[in-house]
Every structure is written in structure tokens, then in C-alpha cells.
Amino acid sequence: MTKSILQLDHVGVRFDALRAVDDVSLDVRRGERRAIIGPNGAGKTTLFNAITGVVPPSSGRVVFEGRNITHAPPHRRADWGISRTFQITNLFPSLTVRQNMELAIRGLTPRKFSFFGSPAATDEERAQADSALTLSRLAARADSAVNELSYGEQRQLEIAMALAPNPRLLLLDEPAAGLSPAERVIVANIIRALPKDITIVLIEHDMDLVLSLVDWVTCLNNGQFLAEGTPADIRNNADIQNVYLGKARHHA
């Protein structure tokens, strides 16, 4: 219990009549690599929104590091160490990569309220940005404008920005969505090489990718908890084969 970093306690999110997340409970241990899988519309992104405060849960509790954060606004949760990427690329397209990183870093520092200060990054900010960019293999593109990056590079910047504030819990929403097989390998290697003290929860449709990256998998279906287990368990679970893998194959 003491090793737990994130607990969801019967969390539900409703949109009118639709139960997008329905009575989901889970427990993520510190340092764990956890995957959330499930077919389209299973409620995976909505679950992330409930954890990050974008959509507050309509029932249940979210507890992070022992603190009940169920109703805290997103920026407070970021302050407490939760960071995320977005399924649909969500960057600052009119700015440069460096400016994106500066915004990512300053969200948790008082420098964001420097009204007349120099815009130049401090040595410390630069080092922090460079280290996140290096982890995301984007260091060479630091001075480019975001709208000059390839789609794959933009996905890497998604990760770099989420890493920049040194989070303790990192939520990755389909980091490899829309990437070519070669680009997927890059993203998988980036995730594999992330510091072990960051707890990671990963949403991903690509089974081969996801099962090679995590040590525990939770499967959702129709907003509800379906099954969980090690990657080996999941591969052999008949329910998941039916609900998820079968469906995914039909779609693909």
C-alpha cells in the first residue's frame, strides 16, 4: 500500500447518459510501467482526463501520493507532479521548440510571473530543456519552429514537454498514434529509456509495442474494467482476445 503512487477508487465519468468511465478502480505502484488498453471508445482518454483534472470524475476518488485530488484543477495536479501527453498532438504551433520547452518548464516555477524580465532561458532552464529534448531524441531540432517539425518529431516534442517539468507520474496517451513502423521503434526506445523513478501509465493500441514496454496491463471495455495482468497473462486472456484483439484486427 505504501508503494502506491496513484489510486483510483470506483471512478466514474458520465457525459449525460453515457458512462464513459464506469466504476473503475486501480492502483499504480511507484516506478511501475502500466499500460491501459481497450478498444476505441473504451474510455481510456477519459480516464486520463479524470486523473489530470480535465474532466473531473462524477463519482469515486482519485488519490495521488496519498492526497485526494478528485476535485483539484489541472494546474494544481501538474504542480503536484502529474504530467501528460495528448492523443491528438497539442503543442504551441506558432512558437519554436525551445519556447515550447520554456513554457513546459516554467509552468511550475515563479518565472512564469516575470512581467518585464528577459525572455532568454536561464542556464538552469536550458539544461532542463536540453535534458528532456535529449531523452526524446529531439535535441538537434531545438531551434526549429514547431510547424516545421515532421509529425513524428511533433510526437517526440509531446513527450519532451511532458518530461520537462520532471514529473513523478507521466501519462502517455497513444504516444505512437499515427506513426510509421520506423517512427514507432524510436518512440518505443524513448519510453524504454526514460528514468526508472518516473511512474508511467501508457495508453496504446499497438499490442506488440505496448506489451514490450510495460510490466502490468489494465484492459478497459465500454468504460468498465475488463481484466488486468502481466503482458503474458494478457496475451493469453480469452476475454481480451475477443473484445480487443479481435476487434482491433477487424478495424485494421
Partner: peptide, 8 residues
């Protein structure tokens, strides 16, 4: 939305 998730 990105700004909020970054702590702003």
C-alpha cells in the same frame, strides 16, 4: 488545454 496541464 496544454497550458493547464503544464501547471498554468
Amino acid at each position: 488545454s496544454r497550458m493547464r496541464s503544464l501547471g498554468y
